[in-house]
């Protein structure tokens, strides 16, 4: 093995940074044991990083000392209690208790006089202890079940949330599109270039009412239905522009337009003095059926 190459491979730095797995670590340690150069280099890398760490030292606030030491002691007590319970569970009831625990009972005293007192170990009778263990186990099982239930509820909630969020964003996108369309329509209605033309009902349908917006500059035609009788099945309303008395096809009204749900842009019309609508076969016809004339109006 080329030692120099190994040193320069960066693996010693990774060892010192703690990013290697156990097998890789063992390998570095083995090579360092066998090759003094590697060992020396590794020590340098480690002490360099240690020094860098030390350079960042920040003295913690004074009141933190007691909190951390107390919290630490509490934590190791809790673990010790648990271990003790597990150990005693394996021991026959007649065996003397607490033999396994050899922890010292001296209180930890700090230089500032703060004393962290040790919690006294419980002195339970064996039968009570058995009950205690049984109760603990039951509690643990219950808590496990509770956790499981809460976890599945959480999963369900998260899934629901995801569905709701997808639905919400889809709704927002639809609304945005609708809003854009309305804005466009509003621009038409507000534009001074569009002239509104009231189309009133003929005696055949006196309640019928519609409005055409006509832009003579751009030739654009929009239709806005207020009230039209529903056309018979297979029939559609057709808009006509009358230019010097001659009817010109201006397009078919979509069913939503005929129902008054939205305004619709029709075919461009170069010139017109009046507009009218007739009921025609779906798809439209080349010339209007005068008997079905429903609304008409002059510019």
């Amino acid at each position: 093995m080329n030692i120099q190459e190994y040193i320069e491979s960066g693996i010693l730095e990774e060892y010192a940074l703690g990013v290697l797995n156990e097998v890789e670590r063992a390998e570095v340690e083995r090579i360092a044991r066998e090759h003094p150069e590697v060992h020396r280099e590794l020590q340098q890398v480690i002490s360099g990083l240690d020094a860098y760490a030390e350079a960042h030292a920040v003295t913690p606030p004074a009141d933190m000392r007691e909190r951390v030491l107390q919290g630490w002691q509490q934590a190791i007590r809790n673990t010790a209690e648990q271990e003790k319970l597990i150990q005693t569970a394996d021991v026959p009831a007649s065996a003397p208790l607490m033999t396994a625990s050899a922890s010292p009972t001296t209180p930890i005293s700090g230089s500032d006089g703060a004393v962290v007192r040790q919690l006294s170990a419980p002195q339970e009778a064996p039968s009570r202890l058995k009950w205690l263990i049984a109760a603990s186990v039951a509690l643990l099982l219950l808590s496990g079940l509770g956790n499981y239930l809460l976890y599945s509820r959480l999963q369900e909630t998260e899934a629901n949330l995801e569905v709701a969020q997808t639905a919400q964003s889809r709704y927002a996108a639809t609304q945005q599109a609708a809003l854009n369309e309305r804005d466009q329509q509003l621009a038409v209605l507000r534009s001074a270039d569009f002239r509104p033309v009231e189309l009133k009902g003929t005696p055949k349908a006196p309640e019928a009412l519609a409005r055409v917006y006509y832009n003579a500059k751009t030739n654009a035609v929009y239709v806005d239905v207020r009230n039209l009788p529903a056309p018979p099945a297979g029939k559609q309303y057709q808009l006509w522009a009358l230019d010097n008395g001659k009817p010109v096809d201006a397009g078919m009204l979509a069913s939503a337009t005929a129902a008054g749900d939205s305004i619709q842009q029709m075919k461009d019309i170069a010139s017109a003095q009046a507009f009218a609508m007739t009921v025609e076969d779906a798809g439209g016809v080349p010339s209007p059926t005068m008997s079905t004339l429903t609304v008409i109006g002059n510019l």
Partner: peptide, 28 residues
């Protein structure tokens, strides 16, 4: 397993350890 040693440990190393931890987690 001398628990009193942890007090000495704290006094000796807390500044260096706390400094590095704080540098990583950024919140006291």
């Amino acid at each position: 397993r001398d628990e009193g040693a942890m007090t000495i440990f704290y006094d000796k190393y807390s500044a260096a350890l706390y400094g590095v931890i704080l540098r990583i987690v950024k919140k006291e």
